[in-house]
Design a binder for these strands. Structure first.
Lengths: 147, 147
DNA sequence: GACATATAATTGTCAAAGCAATTAATTTCG
DNA sequence: CGAAATTAATTGCTTTGACAATTATATGTC
């Protein structure tokens, strides 16, 4: 079925795999009315509540307009709140609401199950290796874009 | 700068790396007025000219509505043509125009340079290993979505 | 042959991502 | 101090992607 992917250029293979992975995870998050990106943002907030949008965008590897819109959607659902920073009145500090906290705590095990399915049969050593390669790619991109 | 990514959950790490990679490649394709997805479709057509949209979508790992819209954009630029199939009058056969062929031939070396930057210092063995893991992920997703 | 079913492509809607431009507040510097 | 530059967030525009529904053509079955 996907035999022709064996010889796929690596860039396409990464992209296609990523889309399939994301799609699979999204099936698990659907029952929580969460997209994978909304999940990622709530997950980050669970670790670092009360940071501003710029910081949240940086840590989620998204740009600020994208973060604005994801937060809009999360706010409509009542899962985050934006409070004007007292130190800097341009900035909003983002916090999870009680409902938002409950939602992310419920979604985390489901997402973990999806990830477990996706990485089934791939040993911890291989996973560590994958992680290493991904970090190397990140560093290459950083290096080349900053010189 | 990206120290906090060291301990990032693997799903987020893959997504963030993918976005950074795609962004870097897109900088190289910009001078050819091509997005990475448009590049991918032209690249595929260069190998298999005259196939229908459904087949093209399948081989590019995109759904049909997405393919319709990418082709719309490529057609506006005059780089592909759609001809009604004589065997099946529901289907369009997609072909590269001479301009489209010229465009993809010019863009390929630029994309290759971007990919070379991104994978600099990563040995062929590691790349083969990465490919193996990505294929395993694909098979896992396939298996789980079809049972 | 006629009717039901399946298929190729399209359209519409929403989420996300990149980029450019804008607004409002803050910082820097002359 | 006050003007200029910087910064946080927002909005608009375009492309991609998932999903549902629609249209037109093909296929299968009675």
């Amino acid at each position: 079925m996907i035999d022709h992917w064996q010889k796929e250029p690596i860039g396409f293979l990464i992209g296609n795999t990523y889309r399939r992975l994301i799609h699979y995870v999204s099936l698990f998050l659907r029952e929580f009315d969460l997209t994978t990106e909304q999940f990622a943002v709530l997950y980050r907030l669970r670790e670092e509540d009360g940071i501003n949008q710029k910081e949240l965008a940086l840590r989620s590897a998204k740009d600020q307009p994208t973060m604005t819109r994801i937060l809009d959607n999360l706010q409509k659902k009542g899962w985050i709140e934006k409070k004007l920073s007292e130190q800097d009145r341009r900035a909003y500090l983002i916090t999870l609401t009680p409902n938002g906290r409950e939602r992310i705590e419920q979604a985390i095990p489901a997402e973990a199950r999806a990830i477990a399915d996706v990485f089934a049969g791939i040993s911890p050593e291989k996973l560590a290796f994958l992680r290493e390669i991904l970090l190397a790619i990140n560093e290459n991109v950083n290096r080349h874009t900053h010189e």
